Simulated assay, not measured.
Amino acid sequence: MHLLTLVALATFVLDQVTKWAVVHGMNLIEIGSIEVIPTVLAFHMAWNTGINFGLFAAEADYARWILIAIALGISAWVWLWVRREGADPRSQVFAGLLIGGAIGNVVDRVIYGAVADFLNVSCCGIENPFSFNVADAAIFVGALGLVLFPGKSAEPGKKGRKTP
């Protein structure tokens, strides 16, 4: 579980540091958008009151607290699931990414009332209208990793309890 804790903490810190640096340090709140690599990467300020890509966005304050409760509940469930299953290192890394990212977005909702999104990636002449952040990427990779690589499976030949 140390690996899960370290990955979750590193993900959370990286998310919060990048948000602070871009939003406050580079003053993206006032500037709005900065081209980093033209036509590929831009920092574009967006406040997300919903979940990924603004789904279920609502201005009502109660919606923010519902999303906070859901994120904390899922994080706790993933933590307990990985702990109970005695997950392998790969699963602990994926769980740590998911939990660290979720907690990073929870902190945003508590402090700002919305999640601070700023990364905007486009490619091949297709302009992406959505922004995301380090936490969103970590949540996506963590969830996908847990689905594709759920951890150790039961050993073949072991079924239930052994009888004396």
Rank of each mutant, 00 (worst) to 15 (best):
A87F: 01
A58C: 11
L4K: 05
H44F: 07
W79K: 02
F53I: 14
A114Y: 11
L55W: 03
E30M: 07
F149T: 07
F140Q: 02
P156G: 03
A137T: 07
L55S: 12
T39N: 15
V134T: 10
A60H: 15
S75T: 03
D61H: 11
V13T: 07
A60L: 14
D136N: 03
R84K: 14
F132W: 08
A42C: 06
G101T: 06
L9N: 01
V82F: 03
G160C: 09
G101C: 11
V121R: 04
I66Q: 06
N133D: 04
G96E: 11
A116E: 09
K152P: 06
L55V: 07
L55M: 15
K158T: 15
T39M: 09
W65T: 08
N105Q: 05
G145K: 04
F130D: 02
L67A: 11
G151C: 07
A76K: 00
I66C: 14
A154Q: 06
T49A: 12
I68A: 10
I37N: 00
R109A: 11
T5E: 06
P150S: 11
G104A: 08
C124A: 13
V93M: 13
G101W: 06
L72V: 14
V23A: 14
S91I: 02
C123M: 13
T5N: 08
E155T: 14
I29D: 14
